[in-house]
Design a protein around this nucleic acid. Sequence first.
DNA 1: CTGAAAGCGCTAACAC
DNA 2: GTGTTAGCGCTTTCAG
Lengths: 333, 333
Amino acid sequence: MGVTIKDVAERAGVSISTVSLVINGKGGVSDELKEKIEEAVEELNYHPNAMARGLKSKKSKVLGLVVPDILNPFFPQVIKGIEDAAKCYGYTLILGNTDGKMEEEARYLHLFVEKCVEGIIFIPSGTFNKNIRLFREIKVPRVVIDRALDDIKVSTVMTDNILGAYLGTRHLLANGRRRIIFVSGPPNLQASKDRYAGYIKALDEFGIKEKIVEYGNFTFESGKMVTTDALEKKTKFDAIFAANDMMAFGAMVVLAEKKIAIPEEVEVIGYDNILFSSLSKPSLTTIGQPAYDMGYEAVKIVLREIFTKKRNSYVSKLLEPKLIIRESRPRRN
Amino acid sequence: MGVTIKDVAERAGVSISTVSLVINGKGGVSDELKEKIEEAVEELNYHPNAMARGLKSKKSKVLGLVVPDILNPFFPQVIKGIEDAAKCYGYTLILGNTDGKMEEEARYLHLFVEKCVEGIIFIPSGTFNKNIRLFREIKVPRVVIDRALDDIKVSTVMTDNILGAYLGTRHLLANGRRRIIFVSGPPNLQASKDRYAGYIKALDEFGIKEKIVEYGNFTFESGKMVTTDALEKKTKFDAIFAANDMMAFGAMVVLAEKKIAIPEEVEVIGYDNILFSSLSKPSLTTIGQPAYDMGYEAVKIVLREIFTKKRNSYVSKLLEPKLIIRESRPRRN
DNA sequence: CTGAAAGCGCTAACAC
DNA sequence: GTGTTAGCGCTTTCAG
């Protein structure tokens, strides 16, 4: 704005350090002066310069956030949780959307240290990701959402992907489905491995040998592609379990185009429970992830680290997925 | 990180100003020194401190963004446009989601000046908004998306709302609909007034007197509520034109619950063309807004102001909506 | 309880 | 070409 603490001090007829004390709510200033200063702040419409403040105090009150795809409705939910939590503690968010590009991830991670963020929340994109190493080396409190790491060098927030995929697959099997295509996310992703494990677990329980796995990248388009492929290859299947709702929608669109009845001929399940999974026709059975909570928890973890200054203590928060049954399953007989 | 320009200077055996020159790509440094400095930067993993840099240079390279509802898929599209454009010019985004709360808007606007953002992109929420005044008084380059202002004191990016609503209504009328409920956004919003004007214009053209207007707040829930109300009040209608897709979905859900055939009995049109409008069953006829472009253009306007330092020259960019015909209209006979 | 003064890390004159 | 230096606006000892 141009108006500085000095202007306020002059206006109020005090020194800048007194003004500083008042602004920051530290006691030890007489009520009289305090009032005078507050008046001056008001009249001048003074806003403390966060850069100067941060430079001196080493506190930016900013959190950095990296998300893979803001167009996937799952992430806005997470972001909202993050925002709300950050807000509670007076923190602001720098947003970095990467479109799943690793260079972008790296760029943002570097940027964040330049901007002196006090914490980083990282939602890595699907593909195998060397940035995890980069991320791990950054000395700022940080947390990964939705990705287990092979060691415990960083805090994480996840849902139980094995359980989620197990619940979904078991549901399909219980409905009599036997040839279930599992549309996985990118294979190198831990979440993909876990969900695959859940899929296998349920299959084993039912003594089913038939494993059909295809790989997508969590986009609507990839869901379409995989399904089209399967159809062209004359793969026989009576169900599709997609690793997220967007791909499930892609599958459903292709199925509808080919006049394949959902769920009568092919049953479809998604993963995430985004709003539109309840609005589609047929509405989509899916595995609900507490997206908002995941974001919220992530911030809590980061802030705890920031406040306690306890580095090298890594927390893992595992949230529960749940099966949400809708119409993309057979009618009850 | 702790490693400063001084460390780099020492390591390279030069002065800090030389390092500064190299970092900022300003010429006038011998290749030899330059190389030595770049090496030191690399080895030390030096990242310039943006706060110090900004404090001195008055350039934060940050843009502030206020959006009303990140959960409405329309906004992530806009945000993506904004992000991509900002990225191009080396700018970073601070994200502020307000849930349509005016206090939040005001909070973020103030915060942005504290954070020394160089530009602000403001997407005001629906309700009548005294923050517009606050916004107008901020001395940073700024632009409003999706909201015309009564004077030209601030740059804007919009689509032609009169045209959009006209196109939609005319389409309905051409399909033989005569009792069209217009589900408006909040009445004080200029976009609402414009869309209402477009609705009226088409009605007049067809010589229809019957105007039925209801007010929502752009949420899915409000679309449901308005439709439920209309049904309970026994309002007679053969079409619903909602001011955004979310409300249209709300309407469609209620209609479906009541076993009212879409589009045979009631035709539904939305506004925005979010991804899911093509995925719903029936897919939703809607007025497409170039959301991504709106975001992108907004950044271009703000950055032009920043770069040219031309204040007090306000730009208005008007983009074209277009009618996207889908299944929520009668089958061709 | 209040003020003076020393920087935080960097940029940008200005000397040399 | 390269180095010296004076701040940017603020917080924070440390005196008084």
